[in-house]
Design a protein around this nucleic acid. Structure first.
Lengths: 245, 245
DNA sequence: TCTAAAGCAAGAGCAGTGCTCTCGTTAGTG
DNA sequence: CACTAACGAGAGCACTGCTCTTGCTTTAGA
């Protein structure tokens, strides 16, 4: 129905997309701080006030870009998981395919990455619209763990007693079919993964790490190990998951 | 000599400090994006142009705040290491004392933390002045690993062949007295540590991790394990460091 | 089919920003 | 004592986000 009722609405969505595209261009060129509504409007041949028909404020434009960036990196992770190399073979290798894909996207889009995993730029509180797209990468990693658990099993990592309640809470929220120890370790690995990527994208590795590809691959492998992913040859030997749940 | 020659120079350094203090206040209140030279000057009772006698541009003022923030978090880490609980006892416990201190500082100064470990705000290239202060936390962690290596030994983590050249390069640069596998693992753990802290400070754990203290402690312990820190009871059993170097 | 309503672009304008330049003035140096 | 260099103040430029008003066009309803 939106195609027939279109006409005006289609024009609107086209202009909206053009604004976001130009904004993304400026974001990639100069960074989020220099992104200017007036410059976007100027480049699009309209006057700045016209732009407010589409985005009520600069922060709302930025929020739209944030959602898009979350979706882009999420789609990248999901695509890597659907790849032949990402959906078969030893589980740590699949894990590494996904993490490397995320890292590659981050290095290719540093400013968009900074928008979502750097300091929160806008009014300090992330809008509600971002929570869905923001979880896509995490869900892919969770899916990898679930796959491993259902096929070859998992070497469930240790779970300190004082963390058990929180681990069980996270498990109920995120993946009731996985052992709490695995879920807790996976959330930690998720954050640590983006620590590695952020340090690389934000230049913290300058003059410290030079050969970053093997460095990241090793760290990613260790991360997979920390959530208990087995490489198949040792299939099942450490599967204590069900017993611990 | 600077005390006698002072008078004017002392006044200058006092004004400089006052500017930085007020800027830090505004930074903590509203974030780096909203920090305004004019507002700082206004609050200090001077006119905005006078402020340019002390900082040639807004980015230079921000850079000064960045250096100060690096120094603050570095000093925090060093102080934690010098603490009784940070300088004795099992090595993973010492490690956790330091990492928790860094985390506490970050949670107490979120905007300053974002300034140094979030998206690079200024002209995209970090000035040379920041490399020294920026490495202080890393050096503390390195010192912890060295202590462990010299007393109880280290369970040197695995080192993939393709990472060996880079690991040896990093070792020559950072800590020639440590096994390359440990140095490589430590650099990775360093980045992963700030991934955990950043996710917490930047709100990525909202509605995901609730009980964050035990969560962080567990992750920190695992990080210590990943660099090979032993807890003393198993002293020496896994010390393969010298053999691998 | 005609009309009222809603969506839209444009322009002027406000308050605020970073930054530059030009002035007197004041404080340390030879 | 005279000189120079540092300093604070002010005006001003180009820019920003954002608001309000003014007309025009498209859409929807009687």
């Amino acid at each position: 129905m939106s195609t027939i009722r279109g006409a005006r609405e289609r024009a609107r969505s086209e202009v909206t997309a053009a604004i976001k595209d130009e904004a993304r261009r400026q974001l990639a060129a100069d960074g989020a701080a220099k992104l200017s509504l007036r410059a976007v409007a100027r480049e699009l041949g309209m006057v700045s006030s016209a732009l407010y028909r589409y985005f009520p404020s600069r922060d709302d434009l930025l929020t739209a870009l944030i959602v898009d960036a979350y979706d882009a990196v999420g789609a990248t992770a999901e695509a890597a998981r659907a790849t032949p190399r990402g959906s078969s073979g030893p589980h740590p290798a699949r894990w590494t395919v996904v993490t490397c894909a995320v890292r590659d996207w981050a290095l290719a889009h540093p400013h968009e990455y900074g928008l979502i995993y750097g300091s929160p730029v806008p009014g300090y509180t992330a809008p509600q619209d971002t929570v869905g797209p923001a979880s896509r990468v995490g869900l892919v990693l969770l899916g990898l763990a679930r796959d491993a658990y259902l096929t070859d099993g998992l070497a469930a990592p240790p779970l300190a007693p004082e963390l058990r309640p929180e681990a069980e809470r996270m498990t109920a929220d995120l993946a009731p079919d996985l052992p709490p120890a695995v879920v807790a370790a996976l959330v930690a690995a998720w954050a640590q993964l983006f620590g590695l990527i952020s340090f690389e994208v934000f230049g913290q590795f300058t003059r410290v790490v030079e050969e970053r590809d093997p460095f990241f691959r090793r760290a990613s492998r260790e991360l997979a190990r920390s959530v208990g992913l087995l490489d198949g040859r040792t299939a099942g030997t450490g599967s204590t998951g069900r017993a611990m749940s």
